[in-house]
Design a protein around this nucleic acid. Sequence first.
DNA 1: ATTCATAATTATGGATGCAGTATCATGCAA
DNA 2: TTGCATGATACTGCATCCATAATTATGAAT
Lengths: 223, 223
Amino acid sequence: MNASTSSQILTAPALYEQVAERLRARIFAHELPPGGWIDEQALTQEYGISRTPLREALKVLAAEGLVVLKPRRGCYVTLLSEKDIDEVFPVMAVLEGKVAEEAARRITSAEFSRLAAIHEDLEQQAAANNADRFFEANQRFHKALQEIAGNSYLAHLIDDARKVIKLTRRDSLRLDGRLIQSLTEHREILEALQLKDPALAGQRMHDHLLSGRAALARLAVSP
Amino acid sequence: MNASTSSQILTAPALYEQVAERLRARIFAHELPPGGWIDEQALTQEYGISRTPLREALKVLAAEGLVVLKPRRGCYVTLLSEKDIDEVFPVMAVLEGKVAEEAARRITSAEFSRLAAIHEDLEQQAAANNADRFFEANQRFHKALQEIAGNSYLAHLIDDARKVIKLTRRDSLRLDGRLIQSLTEHREILEALQLKDPALAGQRMHDHLLSGRAALARLAVSP
DNA sequence: ATTCATAATTATGGATGCAGTATCATGCAA
DNA sequence: TTGCATGATACTGCATCCATAATTATGAAT
């Protein structure tokens, strides 16, 4: 499965991978707007490459759900409907819940200290009301938890789901009061981890994600 | 997201999709053995196509986890380790559990009748000790439940996970007594669905999947 | 003026060609 | 005989080219 991790990569990533990465960034930045058509020719000129690696990159992005390939009609940036979001979030909640559950089972005191340190950072960013840095620390927190859970397949699914969610520019953390609420929830999750209570940790993480979805719903559709 | 479903497909699938489908079949049949190298040139000759659509198909399969692309070294059929299987099954259990839970919430009496009919088929195949047809009916059962749950994203993840699991040729249903046990578990799931008890249905489906993993573990590594 | 048919243009999908690198074999030296 | 170096072979990755289908533009007829 993860044969790519077993053979350490010293070689430069293939061109189509680099292109895929750059396209992801542009999609998340909404520089390529959701629903928008992707002009292959323009991109090949811009990047100074041929269409072959670009098309391969688009296949990869399509598999990730970031773009949609319409046969004979081109490639379009995925446009998420409200229904789509309502489908992805519950799944995300279940997956993240599983991560927290498993992490609670396996967490060592050293790992807990590391998590607590990240949480400290969260507290500070929240105090400073810095949504960007809070978001970044939040990512680190969830990433660390994934490592502790030790299930790379599960982590991979979550990463993909998170990519899809990132297609919507809306950011619930910018909602007034959401930072504090998110922080409180994190604190409770951390507590469950300290208690090494898998069921509780899983439940709280699950609810935390759904709480994020609810916050998102409270935002206007386009900022 | 599912813009492909909104525009009904009257057009023939692209060549790379057809190729991907044929390759999947050959991988599942272990005609292309796990760990084995995929000879692009041989396949292009065999299929009478060029390398372009073939390579695009391989990108898709790589995203599904069926093959691994090693830069400058070619493409290899994914070789699952026991650890990989232990990672995928718990995730599968959680996802299928979520499906059952959601289905229990939404199921109508008509839908229940349809499920019950499929279950009847399962009973008969089990009585006839026909593992192949049991397997097929089993697929229909889970597919039907996915439709009732009504979360296409969730369904998609499960489909992908199932593909990965199919990489191992081992089939727990062939294990002596597993057919009966699986049937019993299905019966209990059905009961929970009739009771419209989401938590119970989810729990039982979850355990059902883990039970399948345990059965698999009891099999010899390679038949 | 509007609508439909037809032609021109453009973009997608697939085939082919070529450069660079990894693998394998052969040979030389220790 | 074993280890390493060097050259030959072959395959991957990217670029270019071509055919076909879709879209748009143009013009005619109602």
